[in-house]
Design a protein around this nucleic acid. Sequence first.
DNA 1: AAAAAAC
Length: 502
Amino acid sequence: MTFNELGLSEKVLQAVEASGYKTPTPIQAQAIPHALAGRDVLGIAQTGTGKTAAFTLPMLSRLEQGRARARMPRTLILEPTRELAAQVEESFIRYGVNHKLNVALLIGGVSFADQETKITRGADILIATPGRLLDFSERGKLLLTGIEILVIDEADRMLDMGFIPDIERICKLVPFTRQTLFFSATMPPEITRLTETFLHNPVRIEVARAASTAITIVQGLVASATGPAKRETLRRLIRDAADFKNAIIFCNRKRDVAVLHKSLQKHGFNAGALHGDMDQRARMASLDAFKTGDVDLIVCSDVAARGLDIPDVSHVFNFDVPTHAEDYVHRIGRTGRAGKSGVAISIVTRADQKHILEIERLIARKIDWLSKETIAELDVEDAPEAPSSPSKGARSRRAPHARDENKRAESSDAPQRGERPAPTRSRRRAEHPHAALAPVEALTEAKTATQAKTATEAKAAPVRRRPAPRPDDDDAPVVGMGDHVPMFLRRPVKAKPTKVAG
DNA sequence: AAAAAAC
């Protein structure tokens, strides 16, 4: 099967060919002919299945007839997050090189002015997140009465995010006669109801089960105590990762994204961050830096869990185990894409064990433990949230390592031989094909190399003076708000939730 | 339990 057989226009086919694609994915092969024929499509597909091209390509073909009028876009694509919207815009730009179509991106967090100019000029393609779209619509700056094709992408995620009322409002603002392309990874009852209301006799296309995890992803669990010890566990995993290229690190909370990001930087890692409380420019900049390889680590909230298509992510680390099993599937799906192999490792504390069971049930398989010690052996209950008191067990075993890292952190502020520091990359391991499955050997082999390297770098670079590092306080200054924060702000807000009587 | 999304 080739793209030529799907009925796409010559202009689109040329752009597809220029991008180097020859064979359509299953969702593309099945959806494109129906989309071109004007049918409503209900696509049940995970991200990473080629879903975006499944609607951008036929839309571009169909838009070749007709032109946009001022403030009346011809097509509308709704996305749950700003990054996804921007990603879809890129897809239209890539495959629309031979067209003279106006593309507008309507997302929050950026100024109105540019967006308004584009809308006023007339947009053939409008890609939007619901909030900003409704804002424009309510201000009378945008008319949805000329919409010919409506795309609702990631519908189940829109549901999770509480967007369904907005989606319903928008569906009522567009003409009844439009064509609707509707995509969702799963079909919960609310989504089914939505499709029954807003789709007309749709073609139903289902490609991959939502809960299936790509077989190209090697998954593993590593037991850890909480607090600073957990960050130490992560650093060890990054350092010892075999075939490491880059990694996405997920935290459950935005606050922890910021804390971990600072911690990694302090330890000399080349890391960026991405979460929804960052301003939009910083979000875009972080993502770009990661895509181009300027940073090889990015610490994220679940804003990045779904849909983001970053080619060649070698590792995903769940710094926190997601509390929703579905999120696990989405997170680890950032690696192992397009037939490439990937590694996904989750750091598990005692409190996470029940979530692991749910995840294993969802993906219908056991995930291997990669750590020698089990959770039961770790002194989890005694592990501190605050940086003041260390956990005994896990800590003392790795103390030499921790000291090592402090040296690295100090040296990292200085430029090394005119290059930006890229510690994780420079530390890339000699091939160890099954390292992820044989972690103990990999760790031993890796450790000597790391230590040798670190020692050299520490000598070569000027050392920034800091209080003598003790393994106990290696992370003490990291609070996510700068180093000078009153002590009372560092204390956990709530009483320790893990403490249960008895 | 938290994240995301409008000002």
